[in-house]
């Protein structure tokens, strides 16, 4: 699949309770690279292998959770077209001027039916991954510092109106449904896993009465061994681990979940499979969702399912 239109999740702005503690965590334990600080006090990071200036932005606030998630689109013409398409579909959009986020172009902001703030943007400065574009090495010192994921990969969000939300992403934003979980009635959606690329998911949603909640943000590692290494680093640093290392039935990823110092859940994972828009979506029934979520435990885990920020 040629990646056009919406390409990938590009940035996420998180709320943290103690900025200094969180900066130390994201830099030295998760192993992201700090790339800047702005006048509003926000701190910017990227994973070592990402090329654009920032992907994770921390903002000190009186509560944890997610402020917004930005998706990079192919170019400015695409951005203009998607803004028109959103408005024609009945979604109110707002323009955020270039530079409001460091090294980031103009953004189109809107709220999706689950209550989360989403943005589209076409430009973010390419600062490289620490390697030249000519004759690079496969990895660098920064790739060994902390957990050191390759990239910010996807998010799982909790909120209401999953059916309406799925329509917006598939009919307007060019995503395709990869997997879904049905509720006991065999019809209503408990969860959706959607992709705008080859990835098994770029975003996922779980039905929840409260809008705008964050279940986790996820970072990509390249092997199961790296997932175990991440688990060791978490325990060495007394990080609050949620569950894992384990494997998902849904999307097949191998994974470990933990919480940042403000209680925002994050995942470091590897694997999964590749998707194409012509692939029929996979469906999980409610009675087998335990195995879908954690393939070895095969049962529902209350903390994993209900704790959000």
């Amino acid at each position: 699949m040629a990646t056009t239109g919406v390409m990938r999740p590009g940035h996420i702005q998180l709320r943290v309770l103690d900025l200094d503690e969180s900066v130390a965590f994201y830099k030295d334990v998760l192993g992201l690279v700090e790339t800047g600080r702005d006048a509003a006090g926000r701190v910017y990071f990227k994973a070592w292998d990402e090329r654009d200036h920032n992907s994770v932005i921390l903002r000190q606030a009186d509560r944890a959770g997610v402020d917004l998630i930005g998706f990079k689109v192919k170019d400015k013409a695409t951005l203009e077209q998607l803004d028109k398409d959103l408005q024609a579909y009945g979604v109110a959009t707002e323009r955020i001027p270039a530079g409001e986020l460091l090294e980031t172009g103009e953004r189109v902001r809107f709220t999706i039916p689950t209550g989360h703030v989403m943005e589209l943007y076409a430009e973010k400065t390419d600062v490289g991954n620490g390697q030249p574009y000519t004759n690079p090495d496969p990895w660098i010192a920064a790739s060994e510092h902390g957990i050191a994921p390759h990239r910010f990969d996807h998010c799982l969000l909790y909120g209401p109106n999953l059916e309406e939300n799925l329509k917006l992403f598939t009919e307007v934003l060019g995503f395709h449904l990869v997997e879904r979980v049905l509720l006991e009635d065999g019809k209503s959606l408990l969860a959706t896993f959607i992709s705008c690329s080859h990835k098994a998911h770029d975003l996922a949603f779980v039905a929840h009465p409260e809008p705008g909640k964050l279940h986790h943000l996820s970072f990509l590692l390249d092997s199961w061994e790296k997932v175990l290494r991440a688990a060791d680093i978490m325990s060495m640093n007394r990080v609050s681990i949620d569950i894992g290392p384990t494997r998902h039935g849904i999307t097949r990823g191998s994974t470990i979940y933990a919480f940042d110092p403000s209680g925002n859940r994050f995942e470091t994972f590897c694997g999964g499979y590749e998707t194409y828009p012509d692939h029929a979506p996979i469906t999980w029934t409610f009675d087998e969702v335990g195995a879908g979520i954690f393939y070895h435990d095969r049962k529902l885990n209350e903390r994993f399912l209900t704790v959000v920020t």
Partner: peptide, 19 residues
Amino acid sequence: MKKNVCATPSAAAADARQS
């Protein structure tokens, strides 16, 4: 812990109205 996720749609909706 609120077991919203494991609730039926109608129970989840009732829960939403309460909170």
